Amino acid sequence: MSNGSSSLSNRIIYSAWDFQQALSALTFLMEECEYDKKYNVVDLRKFRCFETTLIVSFARPFKTGRGREELDLSSIGYELTAEESDLKDKLIRLRDKVVSHSDEEEMEYRTFSIQPFDDHNVRLPIARFQEALYLEEAEIYKIQTLLKRINRALAEFQFKEVQLTPREFNRHKKPTSKK
């Protein structure tokens, strides 16, 4: 991977952080949302924020870009089950088509106008959006198990690598862009 001397690449280190962020967002969602309860729009949007962070953080390690390669879980000794692979694919599809990008194929909304005053020809635009979560409750528990298993595999991999090359792990990576 990086520098040739160790498998502890920036991708693996940051992926561990991404998966921890995803698990935190999932935990917040599980603590506050009861799936069989009806919520107002503000609460639904708060839950959607947790869900969005879960989806984006989970998918980030599996996306390429800016010189980064996709995280290959087999490189850390982790093999996805068929069910886990389906969950991963769904989360990445949600990230790509719905959450991080506004793909027109996935959009759902209704627009209309109203004329609030009988004596004026003024019309007001109204837009109604799909205000619901993308993931079902049963999927949430499966994602939690998957995240815990991946986090454990990453921690075990890092532990083994740091035993082999402790100096490689001692680094301070700073942003290269100027803020």
Rank of each mutant, 00 (worst) to 15 (best):
S2R: 13
S5Y: 08
S5A: 05
S6C: 11
S7H: 06
L8S: 03
S15I: 07
A16M: 05
F19H: 15
F19N: 02
A22E: 10
L23E: 15
A25Y: 10
L26I: 11
L26K: 05
T27C: 04
T27P: 01
L29N: 02
L29H: 01
L29Q: 02
L29Y: 08
E31R: 00
E34R: 05
Y35L: 06
Y35H: 07
Y35E: 03
D36L: 08
K37C: 09
K38T: 08
N40C: 09
V42M: 08
L44T: 05
K46Q: 03
F47R: 01
R48H: 11
F50G: 00
F50R: 00
T53M: 00
T53S: 02
S57R: 03
S57C: 09
F58Y: 14
P61R: 11
P61L: 13
P61G: 08
F62L: 04
T64I: 03
T64D: 02
G65L: 01
G65T: 05
G67W: 04
G67T: 03
G67I: 03
R68K: 12
L71Q: 00
S75I: 03
Y78S: 00
Y78M: 00
Y78H: 03
E79G: 04
L80G: 02
L80F: 11
A82T: 09
E84M: 08
E84I: 05
E84C: 04
S85N: 13
L87R: 11
K88C: 09
K90C: 07
K90Y: 09
R95L: 05
V98N: 05
V98P: 01
H101S: 13
S102D: 09
E104C: 12
E106C: 09
M107F: 10
Y109K: 08
Y109I: 04
R110G: 01
R110P: 00
T111H: 06
S113Q: 11
I114S: 14
F117K: 15
D118Q: 12
D119F: 10
D119E: 12
V122F: 14
R123V: 14
I126V: 15
F129I: 05
A132F: 04
A132L: 02
A132I: 07
Y134E: 07
L135M: 07
E137G: 01
I143F: 03
Q144Y: 08
T145I: 04
L147F: 07
K148L: 12
I150K: 05
R152V: 13
A153C: 06
A155V: 11
Q158G: 12
F159T: 12
K160L: 12
V162A: 15
Q163A: 15
Q163R: 15
L164C: 14
L164A: 15
T165M: 11
T165Q: 14
P166T: 13
E168G: 06
F169A: 10
N170Q: 12
N170L: 13
N170A: 11
H172N: 02
H172F: 10
K173F: 07
K173C: 06
P175W: 09
S177N: 08
K178Q: 09
